Computed example of a mutant assay.
Amino acid sequence: MSNVLAELIELLKLEAIGVNRFRGQSQDLGFRNLFGGQVLGQSLSAAIQTLTEGDWAPHSLHAYFLRPGTVTDSVEFEVEVLRDGRSFATRQVKASQNGKAILTMMCSFQHPEAGFDHQNPMPDIKGPEGIPSQLELARMFRDYFPERVRDIYTADQPIEIRVLDPVNIFAPQKKEPVKYAWMKADAPMGDDPHVHATMLAYASDFNLITTALHPHAVSVSQKDMQVASLDHSVWFHRPLRMDEWLLYAIDSPNAGGARGFCRGQLFNQQGELVASVAQEGLMRKIDLNAKSGEGKA
Score class of each variant (00 low, 15 high):
residue 1 M to W: 07
residue 1 M to V: 07
residue 3 N to G: 02
residue 8 L to N: 08
residue 11 L to A: 15
residue 11 L to P: 05
residue 15 E to V: 10
residue 16 A to F: 00
residue 17 I to G: 00
residue 19 V to E: 15
residue 32 R to V: 13
residue 33 N to H: 15
residue 34 L to M: 04
residue 34 L to A: 04
residue 41 G to A: 10
residue 44 L to E: 14
residue 45 S to E: 00
residue 47 A to V: 13
residue 50 T to Y: 07
residue 54 G to I: 06
residue 57 A to Q: 12
residue 60 S to A: 15
residue 64 Y to K: 08
residue 68 P to T: 13
residue 74 S to P: 13
residue 80 E to F: 09
residue 84 D to T: 14
residue 85 G to Q: 12
residue 91 R to L: 05
residue 98 N to D: 09
residue 100 K to E: 15
residue 102 I to R: 10
residue 103 L to H: 09
residue 112 P to G: 12
residue 114 A to N: 12
residue 116 F to C: 04
residue 122 M to H: 10
residue 123 P to L: 15
residue 127 G to R: 11
residue 140 M to N: 15
residue 143 D to W: 00
residue 148 R to W: 02
residue 150 R to W: 07
residue 150 R to T: 05
residue 152 I to K: 07
residue 152 I to E: 05
residue 157 Q to D: 04
residue 159 I to G: 11
residue 161 I to G: 08
residue 163 V to H: 03
residue 172 P to N: 07
residue 172 P to I: 03
residue 172 P to M: 01
residue 176 E to M: 05
residue 183 M to V: 01
residue 184 K to Q: 14
residue 187 A to D: 11
residue 189 M to L: 09
residue 190 G to L: 15
residue 190 G to R: 15
residue 191 D to V: 00
residue 193 P to Y: 08
residue 196 H to E: 02
residue 197 A to V: 11
residue 198 T to F: 06
residue 202 Y to M: 07
residue 204 S to D: 11
residue 209 I to M: 02
residue 210 T to D: 06
residue 220 V to Y: 13
residue 226 Q to V: 04
residue 229 S to I: 00
residue 232 H to E: 04
residue 236 F to N: 00
residue 243 D to N: 08
residue 245 W to V: 10
residue 246 L to Q: 08
residue 247 L to Q: 05
residue 251 D to R: 05
residue 251 D to M: 03
residue 252 S to E: 04
residue 252 S to Y: 05
residue 252 S to F: 04
residue 256 G to F: 11
residue 260 G to K: 09
residue 262 C to I: 08
residue 267 F to G: 05
residue 269 Q to K: 11
residue 275 A to K: 06
residue 280 E to Y: 00
residue 280 E to K: 01
residue 282 L to V: 08
residue 283 M to Q: 06
residue 284 R to I: 00
residue 285 K to V: 13
residue 285 K to E: 12
residue 289 N to L: 04
residue 294 E to L: 14
residue 294 E to V: 08
residue 296 K to G: 03
